[in-house]
Every structure is written in C-alpha cells, then in structure tokens.
C-alpha cells in the first residue's frame, strides 16, 4: 500500500478507536493530550529520525505557539489566526537561528538548542506585562464544540477537543510520512547517514537541515497552540528544559525513525503517569524503570523493535 495512504488509515483508525472505547470525558481529555504530544513528537521524528539532529530546545517553539494564541487575541487577532501566526513565527525563528546553530553537531547542537529554548523560557518568565510571568496567563475561550455544532454534530467540549487534536495529528502524521517518501525526504535521510556522502550526491546539506529544523519547529508550535487553547491557561513551564527532554524521550522510546514511534511514544508517556496515580509515591521509580527497561530491551525504540519481531515471526512461519 502507498505509505501515505497507510499512515492516513492507521492514524485515523486509532483516533476513531479511541473515541469508541473511551468511557468518559476524562479519557477524551487524556486522548487529546496524546494527540497533541503526537503532533510535537512527529516534528522531532522529522528532525531526529529523518535527519539525525538532536534538539533539546523544541519546548521553546512549542511555547511560541502556545503564547501566540494566549497573547495575540488580546490585540484583536482571532485564536485561529493566532495559531498560524505562532506557527509561522516559530518556523521563521528556526530558519534564522538554524543557519548558525545547525553547523554544530551532536551534543554541541543539543546545548545550542537547549540554550535557545531556555532563552525563550526566560523571556516568557520575566516579561510578565506580556505573558503573566511564571504564574502564567489565561487563554481566551475557544471551543471546537461550536465548529462541530455547525455541521450538526453535538458533543461535549472534551470530545470535540479529542476529535480536533486527533484530526490535526492525523494530518501531521500524513504530511510527515509524505515528506519522508518524497525526493526531499530521501535527501534528508541521506544527510542522516552522512553529511559528506549527501553533499557529494548534490544535496544542499545546510539547507536540508534548516528546512527540517523549521518544519519540526512548526509542528511544535501547532501542538503548543492546541494545548494552550485546550487548557485555557498556559505557564512558561511549557518552554522548560524538561518539556524538551520529554519530547525527545517520547520520540526515542517509540522509535525515532518512524512517525508511528511518535504515536506510540506519546501514548505511553502520556498515559503511564495517569495509570500510575495509584502508586503515587513510586510513580517516578516506575516511570524511570519502564524507560530504562524499554530502551535496554528495544534499543531502537518500541515500534521498530516490534516491527522486527513481527517480521521474524512472519519469516519463521513462512519457512515452516
């Protein structure tokens, strides 16, 4: 099957399946968080999985999206338009800062992006006249319920948010798969394997990196806007170092080489803390333990490892 169509069907099926089995608004709420994370982590997959670049500052782009929908409506920009402004701003910033930063490699790139994210976090924390400071700010009401009502579908707001985030995540996943299989995507993957080899094949390596960086920044910003609107409240913690680390962790845990890894990683690390509330005192122990054990057992992440396993079983079945 065409990989793009396959991605569309799989993601859409997951969105619908969730809606079918969720018994209450609370599940829909967690579900929409999973899809919001899927969006930002898909951006990480484009950057890390396709091109092999580690960023520890994507929470900064996430927060640009979040604060765009929080701040701009106060100046007369509608929330929907603010989302696009935030995404454009994040993409633009990534392009501008990407040129000098992306000459760095490995951990040096990690610390440079970390610094960028921290600078964004600091501005959001200090400039409280604009952002409300560390206590955060209210995000003007926006409810996708009304959109669904326009086409005659009535549902609770948590359900509406679930469907909206699920659909945006589907679009994001499909676009990322499409990108990965385009000539451009093959150029990006060539960069992943070797800068030198890629450039000898005629790939503009610097440009490829900047474009991937900007694309992943836009993914993060869109996710940030959606989270801010869904929560109705936002604090600078969204730009924090730990949030950047969390995004990369989700990608690697699920398997950074594939967008399905983004979905699985988001699912596990979003749902697990909710499951673990009954052992509240030991939550960190279990969470950390699961992360270590998963990475030890499945070194390239869950999805690639399970894919290998399925492949091996299929081979064995055939040889019999």
């Amino acid at each position: 099957m065409n990989p793009t169509l396959k991605a569309l069907l799989i993601t859409l099926a997951l969105v619908v399946a969730g809606a079918l089995i969720f018994p209450s608004s609370y599940y829909f709420r967690v579900g929409s968080l999973i899809w919001i994370n899927t969006i930002s982590v898909t951006g990480i997959v484009v950057l890390l999985g396709y091109v092999g670049l580690v960023s520890l500052g994507h929470a900064g782009f996430f927060a640009i999206g979040a604060y765009a929908v929080a701040v701009l409506p106060g100046y007369g920009v509608p929330s929907g338009a603010a989302l696009f402004v935030g995404a454009a701003a994040a993409g633009l910033l990534a392009m501008v800062i990407g040129r000098p930063i992306l000459r760095l490699s490995g951990y040096y790139l990690a610390i440079a992006t970390l610094g960028l994210g921290m600078l964004i976090w600091m501005v959001l924390t200090k400039e409280s006249w604009l952002t409300g400071g560390p206590d955060g700010m209210v995000v003007a009401g926006f409810n996708p319920r009304h959109w669904f009502a326009l086409v005659g579908i009535k549902m609770k707001s948590t359900e509406a948010w679930y469907w909206l985030t699920g659909l945006v995540a589907t679009i994001g996943v499909v676009l990322a798969v499409n990108l990965g299989n385009s000539p451009w995507g093959r150029a990006l993957r060539a960069v992943h394997d070797s800068d030198v080899a890629a450039s000898s094949l005629g790939v503009d390596v610097a440009r490829a990196k900047v474009v991937a960086f900007a694309i992943s920044a836009v993914y993060a910003a869109v996710a940030g806007s959606l989270l801010a609107l869904a929560n109705g409240y936002i604090t600078p913690d969204t730009a924090g170092f730990m949030h950047s680390v969390e995004m990369v962790t989700m990608a690697v845990l699920g398997g950074a080489t594939t967008v399905y890894g983004a979905i699985v990683g988001s699912l596990i690390l979003t749902a697990l803390p909710q499951v673990l509330t009954f052992v509240a005192e030991y939550e960190h122990i279990v969470l950390g333990g699961v992360m270590v054990a998963t990475m030890v057992a499945m070194r390239r992440g869950l999805v690639p490892a399970l894919g290998d396993l399925a492949h091996r079983l299929a081979m064995r079945g055939r040889s019999k």
Binding site: V248, T249, L287, G288, V290, M291, V292, M295
Partner: peptide
C-alpha cells in the same frame, strides 16, 4: 535516553 530514565528513577 537511558540515562534520562535512570535520573527519573
């Protein structure tokens, strides 16, 4: 990522 998991643990 394993070291990050270990730090949480």
């Amino acid at each position: 990522i394993i070291t990050i998991g270990a730090s949480i643990f």
